[in-house]
């Protein structure tokens, strides 16, 4: 594993613009990862998502499952000592992907298997589709 570092901040800039957050305000204490309810399901820890943004490791970041597992529960945001909203940054990364690839992460068909409350359907469509 070796990452060649070079300035590659197009993704970073877009994510910061969408989220209104400063990625470099994060000092990588890991408190977000320590409390994330979804961390057991994730391939990258939440703090690593920010780390890859800081490093400009865009490919590794855009490939991860983590951003699609974030449930926008705001636990990380509520406890971040630096007041960084990782919840917003996650949304920023998701939106960059959705907007650029135009690929939905879920189709209404997949959600037809059982009877679901509307609030679940609408929220999922909002978060996972373009």
């Amino acid at each position: 594993m070796r990452l060649v570092l070079k300035r590659q901040d197009d993704l970073l800039k877009k994510v910061e613009e969408i989220s209104g957050e400063n990625v470099f305000a994060c000092y990588q204490c890991g408190k977000c990862s320590a409390g994330c309810p979804m961390s057991t399901e994730m391939d990258l820890l939440p703090n690593q998502v920010i780390r890859l943004l800081q490093l400009g490791a865009n490919e590794q970041l855009l490939d991860c499952r983590t951003i699609w597992l974030c449930a926008s529960c705001f636990t990380c945001t509520a406890r971040c000592p630096k007041g960084v909203s990782l919840t917003r940054l996650m949304e920023g990364v998701r939106l960059v992907l959705l907007r650029t690839t135009k690929e939905d992460q879920v189709s209404p068909k997949e959600m037809e298997k059982e009877f679901l409350p509307q609030v679940a359907l609408i929220s999922a469509l909002r978060k996972f589709t373009t």
Partner: peptide, 20 residues
């Protein structure tokens, strides 16, 4: 009581929500 239940993931990844 303040832990997330998995929220809207119930629509796409019901098993994760069941574990939560």
């Amino acid at each position: 009581q303040v832990e997330c239940c998995g929220s809207y993931h119930t629509a796409v990844k019901p098993e994760i929500v069941a574990r939560r």
